[in-house]
Design a protein around this nucleic acid. Structure first.
Lengths: 349, 349
DNA sequence: CGCCTGTATGTGAACGCTAACAATCGAGTG
DNA sequence: CACTCGATTGTTAGCGTTCACATACAGGCG
């Protein structure tokens, strides 16, 4: 007994629609794909049949013959952090409006093996491109080696020599923050850096160094954390013993929050005794005690821009000349310094 | 000129593997699907050919014939918040170990239309089940109406009457927090609730009411926010004018953070003058000024549990008897009260 | 030695769609 | 009025798997 296509609960196929509309399945296909040369009356009849049967095209069949999955993959290392989560959101939005589905894969560890697993996983799903939210230098390098199999972009940080991507100008943002602190009268600025192997962390540290160097200021040893409040707190415990530290630039807001905590514990006031500046502008930044001066980056925008880049690469016919397509290798978004109450003149000035 | 299958860059198909191994395509299929009745030597030859050609099965073709996509969908409303992001992560992990891919769709607005769009989008992708991270009552209701088309679960909050799901026991968690504050000697406890149409918000508010009622305490008007620090701050502005408010239970940590800010601004000390308790235990909670007493929920675990539930529903053969399968309708995880420095005895005791 | 059984392998036909080509129809043209 | 042309529709052949069935091959038995 053959299944009754039109019965409730059983998915109708194109032939059913064709039969109901009194046309061939090919005409149905034409209507569904907006092909020309279909008489309006016919089109209308087909569409009516589609509605009547609640017909939905079979994705697998279409994919098999067109060889396109209309799916993009996203690989992220720690998608629970604020930045990555926000970027993922931006990516999903942009993918939807570009007509793509989004499939995710997370990186278990930040090693080459995990990278390979994640990429293979997405390839098994026939994704047409991959966006990477994980900018450890190592990871990016690993991804770069898998290139050629499928287009890739990085989101959140860029390493244009290896992969195209979208990111804020971390160097410029860090420089602006440090310059601002120096302008307030601080002798120098201390730095709590991110993990040494992250591109963002490196760029922000470089910006900090640059800004100090440009004014021939002493460059204190930089401490480094893992982006977490805890690591910021631990850095703060050391910084609060150093009386020369009157201004601290942290590589992200969460660490800045930990630093604030460390100073608060022993009654050192911010900004009267010490100034603290963060990076990211998380939504909480304005409501900390005190509200945090920070460098804002628009994560959602980064996600969207990165995805646009990816779509461009996916849809551009000739992938041979990788590296030569200037103008589509990087989207750099400008960061913005947001002044709040955690920064001020150094004590005694 | 036919494409050279074995050339680099062109995907080999099963027939190529078969030819190279000197067997039929069917034998290759058997090896790849771990079917019995293949001689070890043959199997070995096939696997060697697979490696040699870097063969990967065509997902579309397999999907077409097996009618299984091995893909699950996740719909979330605001995946940039800490909780949802974390749950998504847990879901992805669990899906991977259960052998499923994960495809995401975000809800543009929290209305029925958006819900329908998101569900249709995932259905077009032929997902076998959907996990929903968005527990506005309205949304859940909308989802429930689409049931029957594809199995669904909610993650983060549960409304077992409508859909199966995994969540913490918000009621119990809230009760514990309030009881703890009363035990410290506070006359009553004020509440900053979440948005009125969220299941979590309702449950936590109910728990707060219960705990006060059980000891016959006055139930102050509750304020409500939108989960954000800003809304917590605004609630704090009002609460700080009310001298009877010596203890405040907030429906999440972000709002608690805003409340702390509001009191801090006018020099009201926490916990000496007022106690504040949150919900969630975000990673920053321990590093606020003061460290926040809160109710911890393990979001990652919720994601995993929710996904297990979904997989069960997907793989259980008979979906007819919905509602009758007791024991697989809800996974309730116990929350944990975490004591930190933001709570203490009321002033004068 | 013929027959039966089980293991190992091959063959053909779906799955539901799109691409390429064929067929049909009406109107305009010399 | 036969002839061409473009618009419209239909027919056929895959896409790369898995499923159902057919076949071949060995060993055990009477």
């Amino acid at each position: 007994m053959p299944a009754d296509r039109t019965a409730h609960g059983v998915q109708a196929v194109m032939a059913d629609v064709a039969a109901l509309a009194g046309v061939s399945h090919q005409t149905v296909s034409r209507v569904l794909n907006d092909r020309p040369n279909v008489r309006p009356a016919t089109r209308e009849r087909v569409l009516a049949a589609v509605r009547e049967l609640d017909y939905r095209p079979n994705a697998a069949a279409r994919m098999l013959v067109t060889r396109r999955s209309r799916t993009l993959g996203v690989i992220s290392f720690d998608s629970a952090l604020y930045g990555p989560a926000q970027m993922l959101h931006g990516i999903e939005q942009a993918a939807r409006s570009a007509g793509y589905f989004v499939s995710i894969a997370s990186l278990r560890y930040q090693d080459v093996r995990s990278v390979r697993e994640a990429v293979d996983r997405l390839r098994d799903q026939a994704v047409e491109g991959i966006a990477v939210i994980a900018s450890q230098a190592l990871t990016v390098a690993a991804f770069a080696q898998r290139i050629g199999t499928v287009p890739m972009v990085t989101v959140g940080a860029i390493d244009p020599a290896r992969l195209p991507g979208a990111g804020v100008d971390n160097l410029v943002g860090a420089e602006a923050a440090v310059r601002y602190l120096l302008d307030l009268g601080h002798e120098t600025v201390h730095h709590v850096a991110g993990p040494a192997d992250w591109l963002e962390a490196n760029a922000r540290e470089a910006g900090w160094r640059n800004a100090l160097g440009a004014r021939s200021r002493r460059v204190p040893d930089s401490l480094s954390g893992d982006w977490s409040s805890r690591s910021g707190y631990e850095a703060g415990l050391r910084l609060r013993r150093d009386s020369s530290a009157t201004a601290i630039f942290c590589a992200n807001d969460h660490m800045a929050l930990g630093v604030l905590r460390a100073f608060h514990e022993i009654g050192r006031r911010v900004p009267e005794d010490v100034s603290v500046v963060g990076f990211d502008d998380i939504p909480e930044a304005a409501f900390l005690a005190p509200p945090l001066t920070t460098v804002r980056q628009d994560f959602g925008e980064l996600g969207r821009r990165g995805l646009e880049l990816l779509v461009h690469h996916v849809e551009t016919p000739d992938p041979r000349k990788k590296g030569t397509t200037v103008g589509h290798q990087a989207a750099i978004v400008a960061p913005e310094l947001v002044l709040r109450a955690s920064s001020g003149r150094p004590p005694g000035r």
